[in-house]
Design a protein around this nucleic acid. Structure first.
Lengths: 209, 209
DNA sequence: AAAAACATGTGAAAAAAATCACAATTAATG
DNA sequence: CATTAATTGTGATTTTTTTCACATGTTTTT
């Protein structure tokens, strides 16, 4: 869409804006100005306006941003016009937490299935999301080729092995919760969430101040 | 030893280095060079060397970095010489996942207790970590004034209210898993982990490529 | 023991991101 | 209907972060 290349820092913030505007919408807010948004999101108003300028002229001078309009624009920009299905590898506590997290009204990212090796979990459901055995992964992805993103919440020891499987089956986006950095070909996007590191960072930063 | 102020980008990477070196240590690796570390961590070797230079001269030319030495140095630098205790607000699936995550051998961040309102959880233990009722929070923190960091895994609706309580009780670092940005005084450090946004970012970036 | 090979640490340059400053515009006010 | 007040979007600037390039020092080889 954008002719000028979107800065990476901006790209990472767009989904945050989208989510914030969804919330404003849910709260019945119809209009917001960059200064107020800055207070809520703890992002400088100038940064917000600059970011938005990459998407197009979203606001009106002296008025601010129409919430419905921005939600619609961001949705299109993000390619979320129609719901995107993703799968979950692992059906433990983290997986369950993620499924609960993902239950937002009007959400357009849909967790369609979870995969696990534990025989007691296989066959069950987590909030109406079915849990299949890992051995069914290939069949499932072949039957659902539109699924290209996976959330990896499996133990670190098997993370790389599962990653290889996923990629072989056509996955090209992975949200990695294992503490291992994954080796992937260039066309695959990995977002890492290392919870242990995050905690260490916080403890460190806290003691600094 | 550098007196020059640590760049924020570097500060956020130091705990990652620490964790990686802990792992190398566990694997029995005694020495590593910035180029190999770069491959593992997906961080440019120059960036690594520059980051390390803020901590001091950690490496040896032509040889690389002694794993034990770097772990010790980073540990001191991060102030992790003695274990730090933190508390967990919420005892649901995410909390359980975090507790499991935090069980790393030789870890020096210790989750000492969890707090929840659910009567069935209160009194139980998650991996030997006791779950107390939220009403006991004030007493607990008064009895344990060395605890200054909390992990907030409570529902978004009550996140701000609990935050206020925490700060009133002397907490000044919060790892926030709720999707709400918290309003806190300047001396309080907040690290946000918005899992829903992370997923949206990934889906967006995946479709870009 | 000299030469070659090579990794660290860092000054300098480049790139990326954030912020300033303000023109353009629009709502509210008198 | 002119004036005032206020907010967006953006050129220009500043700050931050990354990367380049190489001097320095250490190991290995000949």
């Amino acid at each position: 869409m954008s002719e000028t290349k979107l800065p990476r820092a901006t790209a990472k913030r767009i989904p945050q804006y989208y989510r914030q505007f969804q919330k404003l919408q849910a709260e019945g807010v119809t209009n917001i100005m960059s200064k107020d948004l800055a207070l809520i999101m703890k992002i400088e108003s100038t940064t917000i306006r600059r970011d938005f300028s990459y998407i197009g002229e979203l606001g009106k001078q002296r008025v601010g941003y129409d919430v419905n309009y921005v939600v619609a624009k961001l949705q299109t920009f993000l390619g979320f016009d129609e719901p995107k299905a993703v799968i979950l590898i692992g059906a433990g506590h983290l997986a369950t937490a993620l499924i609960n997290y993902n239950y937002i009204k009007g959400n357009n990212i849909l967790i369609s299935a979870a995969f696990d090796n534990s025989t007691e979990k296989v066959g069950s459901e987590i909030r109406d999301i079915p849990v299949y055995h890992m051995s069914e992964l290939a069949t499932y992805l072949t039957a659902n080729p539109q699924i290209t993103v996976a959330i990896l919440s499996a133990p670190s020891e098997v993370a790389q092995e599962i990653t290889n499987q996923l990629i072989a089956q056509g996955i090209n986006g992975i949200l990695n919760f294992s503490s291992k950095r994954l080796d992937v070909p260039k066309h695959v996007v990995v977002e890492n969430v290392d919870l242990a590191s995050k905690l260490q960072t916080l403890v460190y930063l806290t003691d600094q101040t």
